[in-house]
Design a protein around this nucleic acid. Sequence first.
RNA 1: GCCCCCAUCGUCUAGUGGCCUAGGACACCACCCUUUCAAGGUGGCGGCACGGGUUCGAAUCCCGUUGGGGGUGCCA
Length: 435
Amino acid sequence: GTFVLRIEDTDEARNRPEWTDGIIDALAWIGISSTDAAFEGPYFQSNYAEQHVAAAQQLFQSGHAYYCDLTSEQIQERSKLTGKSGYDGYSRDRGLGPAAGRVLRFRVPEGATVVHDTVRGQVTFENADIEDFVLLRGNGSPMFLLANVVDDITMRISHVIRAEEHLPNTPKQQMLWLALGQDPPVWAHVPVLVNEQRKKLSKRRDKVALEGYRDEGFMADAMINYLMTLGWAPKGDTEIVPWAQMEADFRLEDVTHSPAFFDVKKLTAFNGEYIRAMPTDEFIVACEPWLQRWRAAHPTVEWQQSVWRAMAAEVQTRIGLLAEAPGYIDFLLFAEPEMSEGAVAKAAATLDARDVMIELIAAYETVEWQRDPLKDTFDQIVLARDMKPGKAGTPLRVAITGRTVGPPMYESLVLLGRDETLRRMRAFLDGPLST
RNA sequence: GCCCCCAUCGUCUAGUGGCCUAGGACACCACCCUUUCAAGGUGGCGGCACGGGUUCGAAUCCCGUUGGGGGUGCCA
């Protein structure tokens, strides 16, 4: 069926409609489209405001609610006197009618309220612990709690699925459903997500925006897959599972009860898995937005699609985020690679770096410009000196790429060409290796 | 203060009384592969918060303690 997403009535939602559009857009990214969902905005902007007040009046007429003229200051004073916190039901039997400045309060009945929660089982609340809460403000406007219930009844909501933080409010809402003559919906309270301090993720403090992850190069499938493992686990020993299977296997009853930490490291690992699982042609296309961004940032550098295509498969196994892709091939495009200071120092400190480089330049002037000859030539030079190939390769790598790590060396040299390779090697010899 | 929820490796989890000398994933470490870095392969480190019960038997059931989180507005 269809589900309704209730969007919080924050200042942002109220003053900036595009903020809500952003949420809808981000949800579309992970596959929640407007064909599946009806998006309900701030409640007071909804078409149901009249119904909220009408419901309140119905509650007053049926005796489920009463008016009260106490101000919050007066309530505080009374609670000081009685030693009990909160509103004590002072106006319950005073028979007050509606008037400006008077709030309408719900008459909480005797007994207990049992909430049947699909995730957590039965939760019992003593009604004596719940104060007679406000339904209508002094100015006659409905409170969120009431609006929420009335909207849900109007929209024929069957399941209310929300975060655990709403569980304490549920008995109030259930009493409202009952007082309005309705059977309460199925409740399901799923655990909250927490940060490393184990505090509930908050918009102000934590990085929670879906679109933020999308822009960093996380893929929707990986995001969905990871999110699903929070509070629930697919059967078997692997957590990387296609959506169709999770959709088929998921049961609200199986959701865990405790809060989960949102681990970006694990998300990134999942993302890497999804990146590697793509056919390379698809990967090339998926990277395009970030490549475009790179081109925009380097307008003077000529983009070489053939170079990118040739290296794509190598890049694919090395990144966890699509946004990292350009950084792996940029040295092939720049006229001059960006030299990392640490890398240069490491190269310069390599044993016999200068002598090996001189020998290698001489050999590369005539060698056939293919991967295997390039590699064999280097190996012979190094082996003749009784050196270990691993470390001995550092100066060459740094001369060409400016870094100590990067994609495979000889494949890169082939793409770079003999002239440019020799130019970079000579420049490195005359520069960092000159002393 | 009062109310509610929660408690298995660092993290996410499997586990619904015997299959558990507790399984997997991420992270970390080692080795293999590899002129770098990855990927891949193999192995390792690491946990049932504590105390009482119930039971022939408890990670699993009950009670308590401790710890964590959330809620308690004329906010949403």
